[in-house]
């Protein structure tokens, strides 16, 4: 979080985390496509030639003035492939809130579990934990046939009872609900720390 008192700006960093091909970039792409250009930046995607995220995607939102203050949200994705673990750690620098994007397909459960474990390890390394950190889970790809039930996903992945949402990101379903939830969660979390 960065507050510029002179300009009355607050900048918050939200990272979309999850295994490769779970739909992190798809979320950002949908947000970019749907929002009016006056409230969002260009979408920057750092990709390999195979169209996979190599470092991060970046999109900034500036949602009007609230009590003469200007909240800005920097949205990042991480590269999900296992060998980019160092990049993921770097992108978590200064993160204020997280969306963990789950691939609901049954055969992807090991990948979801592995990267969730890595996320928790990364947070612990910097003195934080998912137990108290503001994060939400998005169960994506709910339109596919071979998918885990929500009950199973909740039991296996959501052991800290984070707010969770079902989504079909490529169709936009659940994308903005998730975004709004993580923003509210971050603000509430910061307020609770300030009391």
């Amino acid at each position: 979080m960065f507050i510029n008192w002179a300009l009355q700006e607050i900048n918050l960093k939200i990272v979309y985390y999850g295994p490769g091909l779970s739909g992190k970039t798809t979320n950002l792409n949908y947000i970019y496509q749907k929002l009016d250009p006056s409230v969002r930046s260009d979408l920057i995607t750092l990709k390999t030639k195979e169209d996979r995220t190599i470092f991060f995607d970046f999109l900034q939102l500036e949602i009007g003035k609230i009590k003469n203050k200007r909240p800005k949200f920097s949205l990042y994705t991480i590269p999900g492939q296992s060998y980019y673990s160092e990049s993921r750690r770097i992108i978590l620098n200064g993160v204020d809130g997280l969306v963990f994007v789950v691939d609901s397909q049954i055969n992807r459960m090991p990948n979801n579990l592995q990267i969730l474990k890595e996320l928790e390890e990364n947070l612990i390394e910097s003195g934080r934990t998912l137990q108290t950190f503001p994060w939400v889970i998005q169960y994506n790809k709910r339109d596919l046939s071979e998918i885990e039930s929500i009950e199973n996903l909740q039991r296996k992945l959501n052991y800290f009872n984070a707010p969770h949402f079902e989504a079909v990101a490529r169709a936009g379903q659940g994308v903005f609900v998730t975004l709004k939830a993580v923003i509210n969660h971050v603000i509430t979390h910061i307020q609770s720390k300030l009391v």
């Binding site: 507050i3 923003i183 509210n184 509430t188 910061i190 307020q191 009391v195």
Partner: peptide
């Protein structure tokens, strides 16, 4: 100053704006 910046009214209004 941070608590002054992010008061309850701010979050209510932000929610409406979102």
């Amino acid at each position: 100053k941070a608590s002054e910046f992010l008061d309850i009214e701010f979050s209510t209004l932000l929610n409406k704006e979102l």
